Amino acid sequence: MTTIGIIGIALLVILLLLFFYYVPFMLWINAKVSGVNISLIQLFLMRIRKVPPTKIVTCMIEAHKADIKEVTRDGLEAHYLAGGHIERVVHALVSASKANIDLSFKMATAIDLAGRDVFEAVQMSVNPKVIDTPPVAAVAKDGIQLIAKARVTVRANIKQLVGGAGEETILARVGEGIVSSIGSSESHKSVLENPDSISKLVLRKGLDAGTAFEILSIDIADIDIGKNIGAQLQMDQAQADKNIAQAKAEERRAMAVATEQEMKSRSQEMRAKVIEAEAEVPQAMAEAFRNGNLGIMDYYKMKNIEADTSMRESIAKPEKKDKNNK
């Protein structure tokens, strides 16, 4: 065989592969056998539009066998080009149809494009999901802390999946309801005796409003006793009052010390003035002698008075000491 013949056979094989790639003849036969009406030209155009014909045909066959007439080729192509999961959407439509759940193709594609798993949502509508809340700590009116864990049974709300809040919102609202219920209880003992009172109170609040789920039940799985928050707060308050009282006492002591220092300073100033005045007495007396305002007899009388006063003081001091010793 010549080189030209080998090249010709290779080109023929390549052309056949390209033909069967862009014109999936076997896939068209599979669709026809399954009862799906689709042409080879449409399959060829799907390759041109970069839409996988195998996925489209498989989804159309599944929808046809489940008698879902609203699933069309154009709808599947548009949803695929928009970034959706066509297999998940068709699975969800088939499951919803079998479970008598009202779900349209338009709603299913909207839920899928919103980022939610529409097939899982349909399954959750049939089989409710149980969500365990993290430990929620709350304090009753008697000051005792309780730590509760709850199990929330939810069912997907198909109509609220687009724009509805998720599981995090449900958990947050249930936790808020538990805290409110325990906080309004007069005693922690009443909560321990009737934990179902928490569930009833929380359920009455309609916590599933605006969410993608419907709360079926809230069951308190466990309640533990925590700290005595009331006693701890009283101890902290007493310690704070003690610190305030100590600070005020220290402030008064400092003021007393400052006042005492001030009095000592004033006393020293007064003593200095007295000493200064006593130092001026001899000068004043000499001046009085020179001016004739003070005689010698007046001077002796003054000395006698001073001596008499000094003698009386010396006599009085031993008596004070004896009294102190007694």
Rank of each mutant, 00 (worst) to 15 (best):
E280R: 09
I61L: 01
G210H: 05
N127R: 05
L12S: 12
I101M: 13
R204V: 12
H188F: 12
I29D: 01
R47V: 02
G75L: 12
K69F: 03
P318W: 01
H79T: 08
N30A: 04
H85M: 03
A137D: 06
K205T: 08
L40A: 04
K205A: 15
K320H: 03
V13M: 02
N30S: 09
M60K: 09
G183R: 07
I14M: 06
S265P: 02
P52K: 05
Y300W: 00
S185M: 07
S187L: 04
A286D: 12
E280G: 00
A286F: 11
M270C: 11
M124F: 03
D112W: 07
A231C: 03
L18A: 14
A31I: 01
V202S: 07
K200N: 14
L27Y: 02
A279G: 12
H188A: 08
F19W: 13
A66L: 05
E250Y: 00
A272G: 13
M235R: 09
D67L: 09
F119K: 13
F213N: 10
T153V: 14
A221F: 01
C59H: 07
L76V: 05
E280D: 12
Y21N: 06
I131V: 15
A316W: 06
K200I: 14
A121I: 08
F44S: 02
K326V: 10
I198Q: 06
I275Q: 06
Y21F: 11
I305M: 09
L43M: 15
L203W: 14
S267Q: 15
I198G: 09
E306M: 04
L161F: 01
A245E: 14
K227Q: 10
E186F: 02
M263N: 15
K205E: 13
A82K: 05
S267F: 06
G115I: 14
I4F: 11
M235K: 14
F105N: 11
Q123G: 13
N228T: 07
M1D: 02
Q237R: 11
D102N: 14
D208W: 02
K264S: 15
Y80E: 02
K149C: 07
N127P: 02
G166D: 15
I4A: 04
Q123K: 07
K323N: 09
V122S: 04
N37T: 11
L81I: 08
A148W: 05
R204H: 09
I48A: 01
V51A: 03
S187F: 12
L11E: 12
A307H: 00
S125N: 13
A140H: 08
S267R: 15
S97Q: 06
S97T: 10
I38R: 00
G75E: 01
F19C: 07
S95F: 00
S97H: 04
I244V: 14
E62Y: 09
V274N: 07
P135C: 00
A288P: 02
I158H: 04
M255S: 14
V23S: 04
K69T: 11
R88D: 09
S95E: 07
M235P: 01
K320C: 03
I14S: 14
P24C: 12
A209L: 06
G163I: 02
A137W: 01
F105W: 01
E120C: 01
G35E: 11
S34G: 10
D132V: 00
K323V: 06
K321A: 13
E168V: 07
I86T: 11
